[in-house]
């Protein structure tokens, strides 16, 4: 019974979104359903936070290896939540200065803004920056011009990397005007404009076809994996 109702909900929700562009009277339903979807997506963040709390508290109570880091995670989580939900340090918005809670939690000067600017941003951007080393190192070890396909990938990557830097301009700047198309910066533009456009376009079409077929399978109840193993 629970499974049948879930499949019906999936079908009705999906069909509402699907028919709304074709039926003017269904636009209102689609907007309403979109709002519900956004609310549930927001609730999913709460679920994620709750799950994190549960897992870290279990690790903390078990006093297993690394429980100290669990305590740090919990502390960071609780403090962020407290300053964000409590709008600590937020001043009232200019449109309603008499209402103390009218300001946004991430307004400049607030504690939540401070955490975002001085804790979250530096850590996440450095984590991404560090990937430069790992990508370069992995490429150095894995890239071998063993066959035509691998050579194409390798040469394209080099042209794009050099063509977008000053080094590329210097390296092929001596080429005469009639051969200017072979300058690295121009080659990079040609690759992006022609070959990359064609390849990406086919990938995008392929992904869209995959999304559409998966959507139909989900709505028709042919794919029920999201209901769990005992569904």
């Amino acid at each position: 019974m629970s499974r049948s109702i879930a499949l019906l909900i999936c079908l009705v929700g999906g069909l509402t979104m699907l028919v709304s562009p074709f039926l003017p009277m269904a636009t209102g339903w689609a907007n309403e359903v979109t709002d519900w979807f956004n609310i549930l997506a927001a609730m999913a963040f709460v679920l994620g936070g709750g799950s994190l709390l549960k897992v870290q508290l279990m690790r903390l109570s078990a006093r297993g290896p690394g429980w100290g880091y669990s305590a740090v995670t919990l502390l960071a989580f609780v403090v962020t939540l407290w300053v964000g939900l409590g709008k600590v340090g937020v001043v009232a918005d200019a449109s309603a200065p008499a209402v103390a809670w009218s300001g946004k939690p991430d307004d400049e000067g607030s504690a939540f803004w401070w955490i975002y600017l001085y804790v979250m941003t530096p850590i996440t951007s450095t984590l991404f920056a560090v990937l430069a080393f790992y990508v370069a190192s992995a490429a150095f070890r894995a890239f071998r011009a063993k066959n035509l396909e691998a050579t194409l990938l390798l040469v394209t990557a080099f042209i794009i990397l050099l063509g977008r830097t000053f080094a590329g301009v210097v390296l092929t700047g001596w080429l005469p005007d009639w051969a200017s198309g072979l300058r690295l910066e121009n080659l990079a533009v040609t690759i992006m404009d022609v070959f990359n456009t064609a390849g990406n376009r086919a990938i995008i079409i392929g992904i869209a076809l995959g999304v559409a077929s998966t959507g139909i399978r989900l709505m028709l109840g042919l794919d029920r994996s999201y209901l769990g193993g005992d569904a």
Binding site: T73, A76, F77, F112, I123
Partner: peptide, 8 residues
Amino acid sequence: VIGVSAGY
């Protein structure tokens, strides 16, 4: 960053 991201 795990705790802060979840809270954020």
